[in-house]
Structure formats: C-alpha cells, structure tokens
C-alpha cells in the first residue's frame, strides 16, 4: 500500500456569509497520511481550529464515496482537485507532494451564490429539473416493466448520461459558468429512452429556458466541463441537447 506522511499547507477561502467579503487563510498541516482523503485533511484542520476556539471551515459533503454530489471545491484551480474522474471526497492526499501549498476555493458562478466558506447554493439545478427533467408519470397504472423493450445500446447510453451526480463542477470550471453539461445529461438520458419520447420537445425547451433564466452562461466549447466531470459525462450530450432543442422549435 506504501502509505507515508507529508506536510502541506492549505490556503482556504474563508467567507462568513454572502454579504461579507472573503479572503484566503493559510493552514499548515503536518504528518498527513497519504491514505487520507482530501476531506479528511480538511477535517484535521477543523479539529485543530476547534481546539483553538476558532470557527472551522464550512464545506458541503455527505456520502464521502463519490456518489451524492454534495462535496466539491476548486483545488489549485481544478474542480474536485487534480485526479481525473473523481469527486473531492475521493481525492486522496497521495495525489499531493510534501511541501505543496494547496489552494482551496468554492465553486464560483453567478447562479451558485456563496453561502459560507466553501459552501455554495446550487438550488438552481433543482429548479432546472423541476421545470422538465422527468417523465410525467404518476404512481400506479403503469405497464409491466418488460412491456417496454429497450435495446441494450440505448439503455447503456441513457445510463451513461444518467450517471450525473449534479455536483456543479461543470458550471464551476466553465469560463461562462454554463450548465449545459448538467442539463444535457438529463435531456440526453430521457431522450434515449422510449419513456422520454412523448415530452422530449417540451422538456428540452423548458429546461433550457429555465437554465437561461437562472443566469447560467452559454457554451463556447471550452470543454472544461467534460475534463473535470467526476462521472465522465460526455460532451456529446450537449450536441444531443442542441439537436433536441432545434427540433423543439418546429
């Protein structure tokens, strides 16, 4: 396993609330086990701060196994840190070196206002889903599950897109703070399935309208979103979404 310890310095964005101006604070931590997760390193800093009677760093997290989508921060300018295809909670200290200074900042996007320190408000994502990210089916009275045949290829493509965890890294890493990867993943998931056909035009129109209304930017093909996505959601989804949107106009 080859675990060892390193000394690093965390430079963390501290901001009391949305109204207050924030600034970086520096926290050296020594003898960090390289098997420790990044969030456990933040835990370590927080335990030290509490011992000194100081306010710990606020950060969102929950499952700590890379699936709930609650955690996330910019680490040295990269959403979820240096490792590819993982969330921040699955980033481990073995990805850093002894003596590193690591800069930690919250997601920065107009549509994700900062609540405190590294915690941001991503409720805009829920609003987009509420505007059309579903199949309009109520409980009960549905056909037998095997009455709807779905080619394996389509089911797999739908699943690829449905794997999105809604963490917001795509928005945070986009120079335009665009939510296109997130929105397109949902549109693409449902448009690959027969269940999603009935509402596909309306869905695309409404979700894209909501996305624009909430202050997310446009896509100008920087591809940063795809590069940082912890679930490797593909850029092709945006092409699919654009097609869906175009066809919704006719």
């Amino acid at each position: 396993m080859g675990s060892s310890t390193i000394n690093v310095t965390l430079k963390v964005w501290r901001q009391k609330n949305a109204e207050t101006k924030g600034e970086f604070e520096t926290y050296p931590i020594n003898n960090v086990s390289t098997d420790m997760s990044f969030l456990e390193a933040l835990d370590t800093v927080n335990e030290q701060l509490l011992q000194q009677g100081k306010e710990p760093i606020a950060f969102d997290h929950d499952c700590r196994e890379g699936i709930c989508g609650m955690c996330g921060a910019m680490v040295d300018g990269i959403a979820h840190g240096p490792d590819k295809a993982v969330t921040l909670c699955q980033t481990h200290m073995r990805s850093f070196h002894n003596g590193d200074t690591i800069v930690v900042e919250p997601w920065r996007a107009k549509a994700f206002p900062i609540i405190k320190d590294l915690v941001t408000d991503r409720s805009a994502f829920d609003k987009i889903i509420a505007s059309g990210g579903y199949v309009s089916v109520s409980t009960g009275g549905v056909p037998d599950a095997n009455a709807i045949l779905i080619p394996k290829k389509d089911a797999d493509l739908a699943m690829d897109a449905a794997a999105c965890i809604g963490c917001g890294a795509c928005v945070a890493s986009c120079p335009n703070a665009s939510a296109m990867l997130f929105v397109s993943a949902k549109i693409s998931h449902l448009s690959h399935l027969p269940q999603g056909q009935v509402e596909r035009k309306e869905r695309a129109k409404r979700m894209i309208q909501t996305m624009d209304d909430l202050g997310f930017g446009n896509c100008s093909n920087h591809r940063e979103c795809e590069a940082v996505c912890p679930k490797e959601i593909k850029l092709e989804n945006i092409a699919t979404m654009n097609r869906e949107f175009a066809s919704s106009l006719f």
Partner: peptide, 12 residues
C-alpha cells in the same frame, strides 16, 4: 414497473 415508467435506466 413504476421505476421503468419513470425512465430509470435498468440494465437490459
């Protein structure tokens, strides 16, 4: 049945 109708992408 319910989950399939909602578009849950079960393995096929």
């Amino acid at each position: 049945d319910q989950c399939v109708a909602q578009g849950v992408p079960f393995a096929r």
